[in-house]
Nucleic acid binder design. Structure first.
Length: 408
DNA sequence: TTCACGCCCCGTCCTATAAA
DNA sequence: TTTATAGGACGGGGCGTGAA
């Protein structure tokens, strides 16, 4: 029975209850429960020789679910922060390393106090005073310095991820950003916190992270840097692809990641965020939007329906009509490149499952599930079908779909 | 002074959930 | 059972800045 109602159990919010999956949220995160259902199904059908691929790793949901189910998985992403985060989420933490982290945390909680009156490094975030009060910022920068001195920057040490992820949680929890909304607006005023309050909150966050990190993981998952449009097999033939690529909508992935990325030094200026978003399929932040105007396609044999839809959008009565039509064109163009390159990495009979959403531009519906199905057909995939996963929370015509295909 | 660009911010509308 | 409230894998409005 296919449910086409809204499914609270298939949203990012629900993911927070699943141990490591709740470490650091990204509003556009796909459902842990849904991935788990797919993985469990895979377990029933194929006991042996399963190798899972997620070419759009994001927060490594697929990788973590797969590894927890005892499978091996390779994941790819182009965002260095997400690669780092994903590997920290999927890593094995021995009792000894947990003990080391706990000792380091005790030291951090003590040493940061002596830095409170210093001029410590703060990130180059635009209008940072909208995010944190001067007082809060002073405390956060002192804590950051203590973490660096005790454990180093992210990437410098393979167990410090737990503490840095906790720090990322901390900065958002005490920020004035309304992070519960994809639009990410700000409250009118920042709150002033006492250092003891922040210290206590940080401890609570770290405790919950460490508790879930202690559970051993049966399988293996690793996130690598890679562009999905030029994906390399790594010498492996994948038997299953379980992924949720970006949708052809105007959600910017870099937008919400910026605070984390600035504080962890994966990002140092606004321009870099725009550049990274331009590299992403469906990127729409900053300079990515303006570059669309000059963008030229490399492929012209995309599904006919795509050209029809793009023409409709282009002729809409809106000053951004042309831009949006290019945006949609580029999205499916890039997905074509991805699905083309993907074939080289697949084992015979490989099963694909793509979780995607449709969109509308000026009330013209873009049927992502159908356009991707047609693209798969052009690229000679087989057994192509799709079904509705859930109703999305915005406009009434927006759904989330699962597109199925096999490669033989 | 104009204009493009980069970026911040919020109105919508419908459903799930809580409260009555 | 009815009513109130919250909030979201949108999408667009509009403002500040700096180059020309």
């Amino acid at each position: 029975m296919i449910k086409t109602k809204q499914r609270a159990d298939y949203t990012f919010k629900y993911n927070r209850n699943f141990g490591r999956h709740g470490w650091l949220r990204l509003t556009p995160a796909y459902s842990v429960k849904l991935v788990n259902e797919i993985v469990q199904q895979t377990k029933l059908e194929h006991q042996d020789e399963v190798f899972i691929l997620d070419p759009f790793s994001g927060t490594a949901t697929t990788g973590l679910v797969a590894a927890q189910a005892g499978f091996s998985a390779h994941l790819y992403d182009i965002n260095p922060f997400l690669i780092w985060l994903g590997n920290a989420k999927c890593a094995e933490y021995s009792p000894y390393s947990i003990e080391c982290i706990e000792q380091a945390i005790s030291a951090i909680m003590e040493t940061y106090k002596q830095y409170l009156d210093d001029e410590n490094w703060t990130p180059n975030i635009y209008n940072i005073e909208r995010w944190w009060s001067t007082q809060t910022l002073r405390i956060l920068s002192a804590i950051r310095r203590a973490i660096v001195e005790e454990l180093g920057e992210p990437l410098e040490n393979d167990i410090n991820g737990l503490v840095w992820i906790g720090f990322c949680r901390l900065i958002i929890d005490i920020s004035a950003a309304a992070f519960n909304h994809v639009s990410m607006s700000f409250h009118d005023e920042t709150t002033i916190y006492a250092s003891q309050t922040i210290e206590l909150l940080f401890s609570e966050i770290l405790n919950s992270i460490i508790a879930s990190a202690s559970h051993p993981i049966e399988g293996f998952a690793r996130v690598y840097e890679g562009d999905s449009r030029a994906i390399q097999s790594n010498g492996v033939r994948y038997t299953h692809v379980i992924t949720s690529p970006p949708y052809p909508n105007r959600i910017s992935y870099i937008r919400e990641l910026r605070p984390y990325m600035y504080w962890t030094k994966f990002l140092s200026e606004a321009r870099e965020a725009g550049e990274l978003d331009w590299e992403a399929i469906g990127g729409t932040w900053g300079i990515a939007t303006s570059r669309l105007k000059e963008w030229k396609p490399k492929h012209h044999n995309l599904p006919d329906e795509l050209y029809t839809v793009c023409d409709s959008i282009k002729t809409s009565d809106n000053k951004n009509a042309f831009l949006m039509s290019r945006y949609v064109y580029k999205y499916f163009h890039d997905m074509y490149q991805h699905l083309d390159a993907l074939r080289e990495t697949l084992a015979t009979g490989a099963k694909l499952r793509y979780i995607v959403g449709n969109s509308t531009f000026y009330n013209i519906r873009v049927d992502t599930e159908r356009l991707l199905s047609l693209t798969l057909q052009k690229l000679e995939y087989h057994d192509i079908t799709h079904q509705i996963v859930r109703k999305r929370n915005s406009k009434k015509e927006l759904f989330e779909f699962c597109v199925f295909a096999t490669w033989q």
